[in-house]
Computed example of a mutant assay.
Amino acid sequence: MLRPHPAVLRRLVDEYEALSAAVAASETADLSSRVRDLAYTLCVSTGTRDVERALKVAHQWLATAPAPVRESAPPTITGQRMATPEPA
Rank of each mutant, 00 (worst) to 15 (best):
V57N: 06
A25Y: 01
L12E: 03
L9I: 00
V57T: 10
D14A: 12
A22M: 12
R10V: 00
S33R: 09
T48F: 03
S20M: 08
T48Q: 11
L19N: 04
V57D: 04
I77K: 04
P6Q: 02
S26C: 01
P85Y: 10
T64R: 15
A88T: 07
D30L: 13
E86W: 02
L42I: 07
A65V: 01
T84D: 10
L42A: 11
E27H: 12
T78V: 09
H59I: 00
R34H: 09
R36T: 09
D50E: 14
T78S: 11
R49Q: 15
R3G: 09
R49L: 15
R70G: 02
A39I: 02
V35N: 07
T48W: 00
A22V: 07
A67V: 03
Y40L: 14
M82I: 13
P6H: 01
A88W: 11
A83N: 09
K56A: 15
S33H: 07
L38I: 06
A21D: 10
L9G: 01
R81G: 01
L19C: 01
A18K: 14
H5T: 03
A83S: 12
R53K: 13
A39H: 03
T64S: 08
Y40K: 14
Q60G: 12
E86S: 05
T46G: 00
R11N: 11
A67I: 01
V57P: 11
W61C: 09
T41L: 08
I77A: 15
T48D: 08
L19K: 12
V44F: 01
M82G: 06
L2V: 07
L2C: 04
A73P: 07
A25I: 00
A24C: 02
R81E: 09
E15H: 06
A24T: 08
E86T: 10
A25N: 02
T84R: 14
L19T: 02
A29K: 11
R3T: 05
A73G: 02
A7R: 10
V69T: 13
T41H: 08
R53N: 12
A29M: 10
R34Q: 12
A54S: 13
T48A: 12
E52K: 11
A73H: 13
Q60T: 13
T64E: 15
R49A: 15
A39T: 06
C43V: 11
P74A: 11
R49F: 15
P6S: 00
E27V: 04
A21N: 12
S45E: 03
M82C: 08
A67P: 03
